[in-house]
């Protein structure tokens, strides 16, 4: 029965919505955590050290999140292929009534987000693109040995205009994906009716826009700060 549910059209929509919600929630937490870079080196480095020192927890969380992302991507592609097969011959003339552009480009925005995700991991998590990041260490109160200087890594990383711009474009794409994704997930989970549907559409855009502002402020502020345009402590 469980297998049948997961393979069904509606069951797969549930999987998309549930994994999408979890990925979205992570993005909010990730954003709030990273805001600490705006509060100075001690704040963000202490936070980073706190996460790094809980290895088993960190790795179970990474595993869980990876599994959610993998499910979201696999099921997303599976649905997309199914949907293409459902209309083998296209309309010679087609007039779209109310489907927004974001809703028609989910697979493309998703693919670009995935490409950025790989880049982001190589950049700041594995540090393969900038091996020198691994050597950045600093000190925080209450800890004997030197810890990773995440503050310096982020400042160095966003010193480059191209890198900062890439991050900002990527979070814009994520917001674009979510401007359809958020209202959509309520429908997929069966939590929508005529009374709330307009509200959900606006709510989706508003949340997506706030997420964009929040996530893009980090590269934008660091880029401006290292160039002396603004002052951060």
């Amino acid at each position: 029965m469980f297998k049948q549910f997961v393979a069904s059209s509606l069951g797969r929509k549930y999987l998309m919505a549930l994994t999408g919600t979890i990925l979205f929630s992570f993005m909010v937490v990730h954003m709030l955590g990273n805001f600490q870079v705006l509060l100075g080196p001690e704040q963000i480095n202490t936070y980073a050290h706190m996460l790094q020192s809980k290895k088993p927890l960190l790795w179970s969380f990474r595993l869980f999140l990876g599994l959610m992302a993998l499910t979201h991507i696999t099921v997303g592609i599976w649905l997309w292929l199914d949907n293409r097969r459902a209309r083998p011959d296209h309309y010679r003339q087609e007039r779209t009534q109310q489907a927004g552009l974001a809703s028609r480009t989910m697979i493309y925005s998703g693919a670009l987000i995935l490409a950025f995700f790989v880049y982001h991991i190589l950049h700041f998590t594995l540090r393969w693109l900038n091996p020198e990041f691994a050597g950045f260490t600093g000190r925080i109160p209450g800890v004997e040995e030197p810890v990773a200087d995440v503050y310096r890594m982020m400042n160095q990383g966003f010193f480059d205009a191209g890198v900062s711009l890439t991050y900002i474009v990527a979070v814009a794409l994520l917001a674009w994906h979510l401007s359809h994704g958020i209202p959509s997930l309520f429908q997929s989970l069966g939590l929508r009716n005529d009374a709330v549907s307009r509200f959900l559409d606006r709510f989706g855009w508003a949340v997506a826009f706030l997420l964009f502002l929040g996530l893009s402020i980090i590269p934008a502020a660091l880029f401006a700060a290292v160039r002396g345009a603004i002052y951060l402590r």
Partner: peptide, 22 residues
């Protein structure tokens, strides 16, 4: 009904609501 619908090769809803418009 859902399992027959799936077996008949209909696609999956992507919550765009073109259907209700027509």
């Amino acid at each position: 009904m859902v399992s027959t619908m799936d077996a008949e090769h209909f696609g999956n809803c992507t919550n765009q609501y073109e259907c209700e418009a027509v």
